[in-house]
Each structure stands twice: as structure tokens, then as C-alpha cells.
Design a protein around this nucleic acid. Structure first.
Length: 425
RNA sequence: GGAGAGGUGCCUGAGCGGUUGAAAGGGGCGGUCUCGAAAACCGUUGAGCUGGGUUUCCGGCUCCCAGGGUUCGAAUCCCUGCCUCUCCGCCA
């Protein structure tokens, strides 16, 4: 959510920026509602002031056993008028709110301008794609040969898009999660959180998934709860409606969670295999920081996520998303894409975003400046570090051998009970 | 699932329907004292919105879990929801 003051001061700029982000908004209506709101407030506050002073007078008259019926009758009318105006104000504010929550975050000045995802900028690449003296298999084939991914049985027990990991595949998945968590907690100084996997509406509103993306989430109607699409939601909401001390910042959390996505509307894209599934595992990094440091923190966050890819020895590239491809709540975002030789394409395995105060406003997360000033909104950031589903794909396809086995990267050995190579059963 | 209790400021904890934004204590901050510290004493200590002067300034309105209702007036009365706690049942 943007600051109303900011919209009031730069309506044309906001209008242009929202168009650049491909989610235009009706700024004129918002400005108009804002004016009506403030006019109403002026009038209703004048009347309430009158009511308050007169009520005092009534109390005094009563105490002195004098007649107050005239003032009371007068105030009854004023009260009716107030009730009427209160209703109007509430209505205006609700309408204004409905508009405001749909205004996207404004892209940061360092975010490139573009028309579509084609205009994302390749900012960095790491190593070269591995070369093979044989035709590399894709992960689906490898999964079947090695008996580590079972698509048909997943479909049987849950549905399409719910593959089952088995044997060394299951163990590898667990090793990856452990490696991620250990790295970020011990090496990078994040505090570990194990969050609920179901959250309420308020939490999803706070991080920006609601109201825009409700159809993308699994909803348990009976309890009014949603399956989290990412640990970002519960973890960022930890400090909702709180005022933190400046000394506590920056707060750095990492959390493993399963992630649930309906992927409605994306049927036909990446339908095969393990690339787009309804449930996957992810270790998420979340930061709450001083506004003045958030862009430095974004670079550090990206470095922390990249460290994992480097340690796994995967070829990858970094994209800086252009404004048109930026998500609703983000001001700047880097996508990390790992190379999958079998697919012959890059797979998005992490998005590192700075939301500035956009989420903090929705969640009302503030900090008290060290000098004791009024509370200010924190800046929030998050990034995957990393998502296992696609990393597993990149891993299997990168480390496969001519005879169909897959080497286990050395950094995962501590969690593989001595297994260094996965072979056919 | 059944039966109770309760949700007040950073914390504990008062609060006959009418100067209660809120007693008291604790904590925090500032000061006095001290070479310094402790103790003691004094002072101070919420947020949002909206005006005006427009750097440290001065007003008004709102907020005692949330949303409704009663009333001239509600933290205080009534209803609904949410949350917490205790007991019973069930259970990983």
C-alpha cells in the first residue's frame, strides 16, 4: 500500500508508474475520495467537539440538580447528525481503501523500464553451462530410471502436480533443505523460524497476495484459512501491528516451509515434470530493515541466495526484472535462474525482492527511531534461498553421467549418509 | 467437542455511565545527590487521523481485543465475533 500523502503530492507520477508496472489505477477517483474524506472529517469533528463540550455541561447541570432537558434535546439532534456523517465517512473510507489496496508498489529508480519479461536485464552469470559428451537426459527420465520421483502415484493419491519423491530422491530433498537452513543460520546469521503452513486472510493481505491472487491459493473454507504459497507470508507477518526498536534491526529470518500453489490459469505451461507443481519445498529468507539500508540489504540478500547456487556448483544467471515484469508488491527484484541441461533452459529458483514500505504499511510494522522520534515503517525484503523442486531438477540434470547415475555434490554429503552417487536400482 | 474465566498503556493491575488517555506499582528515560555506582528523591514516559503556524509550535477528533447496539454522554450497560487461560473428553 502506498502512502496517501505520496499519491496526493505526485498523482501524475503515480499514474505513470502504475501503467509502467502494467497495473494501471484510477488515480483521479482516489484523489477525489481523499478530498471528500477530509471534508467529511472536518465537519464531523466540529460536531463531535460540540457534543463533548455540551455533554460536560449536562453533567454539571445534573450535578447541580438543574434542568438539562433543552440541551439534551439539542444534542440528540447533533448526535443523529454525527451518526449520519460517521456512516458517510466510513463508506468513503471503505471505497478509498478498496482502491488504495489495488495500487501496485512503484518501481525503484534502479529498476529498468520495459514492456515485458523480454526486457529483463541479465545482470550476472556464474560459471558456464556444463558440457556433456552424451545427450543429457531430462529430470523426468532420470527420475524414473533412478526410481526417485513418482508422478503417477502422486497423481493417484492427490492429483496432477503432486509428485512423490522416493528413496534417494526423498533423502536428497531433505539434504537440500538441511543444507539451506544450516547455511543461512550458521553462515549468514539468519534466525530460524518454523511457521504455520496455514494462515488467515489478514496475513495474506499484509504481504500482498490478497486481494489480487486469491484464486492462486488453496483455501480451507470451513476454517477460513489458506495454505501458504510461501513462508514469506507467515514469517513477514510475525511482526504485524508491532513497533520494533531500531536496535533490533535488521531482523533476518529464514524458514523452511512447504508451499502450496493452485497455479490456476497456467495450465499448459510446464505441465510436465517437476517444474510447476502444486506443492514444493522452499527455504525463505525474510528481512526487516531500516529504510535507508534496504537497497544494500537487497544486494546482501541476493549474495546469500547466490551462495547456495555456487556451493552446489550450478551454472546460473541473475536477472534484474524490468518494471513491467515486477510483482505487485515489489519495488525491485532479482531473479536467480539455474541452468537445467536436460531441459535446455534456465529455471527460476529464487526471487529476491525489496518491497520498501509497501508491505510494512499493509501490516503496520514500524520501528521506533533511536532518537525517540515517531515510529516509522520498516522496509521488508525476501528471497528464496532456495526452492527445492527446481533446484532438484537442475541438480539431477547437471550431475548426471553417461551411464545414467547422478553424482551428489560434496556440500550435501553430510546429510546423505555417505552416499556420493545415485544409481539405478 | 462439553463446562467455566478473562481480554485496559512497555509489564503487573485499578476503574459508581459524565474533566479517565485512563489510579497505583514496576520498567524505561531525564535530573538532583555522588569521585563513580547503588539507594533515595523529583520529573517524564502511547498511537492514529485531521487542522493552523509551517525546523524544535499550538489545537481538534478517535483509540481501554474487533464489529454492531442502548444513551445527551460508554473503558464502564447489551449483542456478535476473535483470541487467551482453566477443567473434562478426544488425540499425534
Amino acid at each position: 500500500m502506498l502512502d496517501m500523502q505520496r499519491i496526493r503530492d505526485n498523482p501524475e507520477f503515480i499514474k505513470k508508474a502504475s501503467e509502467n508496472k502494467k497495473s494501471p489505477v484510477d488515480i483521479d477517483t482516489i484523489i477525489n475520495l481523499d478530498n471528500r474524506r477530509r471534508d467529511t472529517i472536518k465537519e464531523v469533528e466540529r460536531l463531535k467537539n460540540l457534543r463533548n463540550t455540551r455533554s460536560q455541561e449536562i453533567a454539571v447541570l445534573r450535578k447541580e440538580k438543574k434542568d438539562a432537558t433543552k440541551v439534551i434535546a439539542e444534542m440528540k439532534e447533533v448526535s443523529d447528525r454525527i451518526k449520519d456523517l460517521d456512516g458517510q465517512q466510513k463508506e468513503i473510507e471503505e471505497t478509498l481503501h478498496e482502491h488504495l489496496i489495488r495500487v501496485p508498489n512503484i518501481a525503484h529508480e534502479s529498476t529498468p523500464h520495459g514492456e515485458s519479461e523480454k526486457d529483463n536485464v541479465v545482470t550476472a552469470t556464474w560459471e558456464k553451462p556444463p558440457s556433456f559428451d552424451f545427450k543429457p537426459k531430462d529430470h523426468i527420465e532420470l527420475g524414473i530410471i533412478l526410481d526417485i520421483i513418482d508422478f503417477p502415484r502422486g497423481a493417484k493419491i492427490a492429483g496432477a502436480g503432486f509428485p512423490v519423491l522416493k528413496n534417494e530422491g526423498a533423502r536428497l530433498e531433505r539434504a537440500l533443505i538441511n543444507f539451506f537452513l544450516e547455511t543461512h543460520t550458521r553462515r549468514h546469521g539468519y534466525r530460524e523460524i518454523f511457521p504455520p503452513f496455514l494462515v488467515n486472510r489478514a496475513s495474506l493481505f499484509g504481504t500482498g497476495q490478497l486481494p489480487k491472487s486469491e484464486e492462486q491459493m488453496y483455501f480451507i473454507g470451513e476454517d477460513g484459512l489458506f495454505c501458504i504459497p510461501t513462508a514469506e507470508v507467515p514469517v513477514t507477518n510475525l511482526h504485524r501491528d508491532e513497533i520494533l526498536d531500531q536496535a533490533q534491526l535488521p531482523i533476518k529470518y529464514c524458514a523452511y516451509s512447504a508451499c502450496f500453489r493452485r497455479e490456476a490459469g497456467s495450465y499448459g505451461r510446464d505441465t510436465k515434470g517437476y517444474l510447476r507443481v502444486h506443492q514444493f519445498n522452499k527455504v525463505e529468507l525474510v528481512k526487516m530493515v531500516l529504510p535507508s539500508t534496504s537497497y544494500d540489504e537487497l544486494e546482501l540478500l541476493r549474495i546469500d541466495a547466490e551462495f547456495i547456487l555456487k556451493a552446489l556448483g550450478l551454472h546460473y544467471r541473475v536477472l534484474t526484472l524490468c518494471d513491467a515484469d515486477l510483482s505487485f508488491a515489489a519495488a525491485k527484484c532479482y531473479d536467480l535462474e539455474a541452468w537445467a541441461p536436460g531441459e535446455g533452459s534456465y529455471l527460476e529458483v529464487s526471487s529476491c525482492s525489496n518491497f520498501e514500505d509497501f508491505q510494512a504499511r499493509r501490516m503496520n510494522i514500524r520501528y521506533r527511531p533511536a532518537n525517540g522520534d515517531k515510529p516509522r515503517f520498516v522496509h521488508t525484503l525476501n528471497g528464496s534461498g532456495l526452492a527445492t523442486a527446481r533446484i532438484l531438477v537442475a541438480l539431477l540434470e547437471t550431475y548426471q553421467t553417461a551411464n545414467g547415475t547422478v553424482h551428489v555434490p560434496e556440500v550435501l554429503h553430510p546429510w546423505m549418509q555417505g552416499l556420493t552417487e545415485i544409481g539405478p536400482r
